[in-house]
Computed example of a mutant assay.
Amino acid sequence: MAAGRRTVLDPAQRYDLIVDAAIEAFAERGIARTTVSDVARVAGVTRGLVYHYFPTMDELVDAVLDRSVAAFVERVRLWDAEREVGQIEQAVHEVVVMLREQVHPGHPRRLDLRDPANSAVYQRFVDRAVAAVVDCLQVTTVEAYAARHRIEITHVREVFTVLVHGLVGLVRTQPDVPDEVLASVVRQVLRLDPDEPTDRHPGTGGGRPDLG
């Protein structure tokens, strides 16, 4: 590339560039201490361009949260597509693992929403993530489970919402709570059937699997 020649990005690419820079800046300085100037520096753009796409820092934070929520939902969809038919106990434990990954992420560039300075942002993330994940589960896991089992709870969406909110709060405030306890809570609240015998559906290999 010739010296001084600038790469021209379309609006969607510039938007993503700024969001990527915000994620990096938040990881370096913390959400509460990051300024628009910090984001502009990391992105290699002017402050004015950041303001063009995100007039307020709250809007930029929301864009970062939306990115995180979308990644979580995609993780749930991938899990749903790869589950083993009829293995409900295994499915419950896998859900517990996914939940821990989101509440206590180990990746250094993930947002540290446990920081008390980020409490308001954390609550926004949890509310959005729970709503999005429950919406995803309703059209994947819940429908698949209902096709093979009787659902023993009423107000399904509301129960799932309360359950996920409660599990997130429990894992966040008591990180040492055993996975077995969390799995037991899920089973009791949702009143799940036991695992199906492995030979109940011989030859099953395609299609969307049931809960498990």
Results as ranks from 00 to 15, higher is better:
P55I: 09
R83H: 10
G48K: 08
W79L: 14
E74A: 15
Y51P: 04
A71C: 02
V92N: 02
E84T: 14
R47W: 01
D62I: 07
Y53H: 13
V45S: 04
R77S: 10
R83Q: 14
L49V: 08
Q90D: 13
M57T: 14
A71S: 13
A63N: 03
E82L: 11
F54H: 09
G48H: 07
A70L: 09
V69W: 02
A43T: 04
W79T: 11
R67C: 05
L49N: 05
E82R: 15
A91G: 15
I88P: 03
V69M: 06
L65S: 01
A91Q: 08
V61W: 07
R47D: 12
D66F: 00
L78S: 13
F72E: 11
E59R: 15
V92E: 00
R77P: 06
V64I: 03
D66M: 04
F54R: 02
P55T: 10
H52I: 07
L65W: 01
G44I: 05
F54L: 04
H93A: 02
Q90N: 09
P55N: 09
M57Y: 15
Y51S: 11
T46P: 05
R83K: 11
R83P: 02
G44K: 06
D58G: 14
R83M: 12
T56L: 10
L65E: 02
L78Y: 09
V73I: 08
Y53N: 06
A70K: 10
R47V: 13
R77H: 09
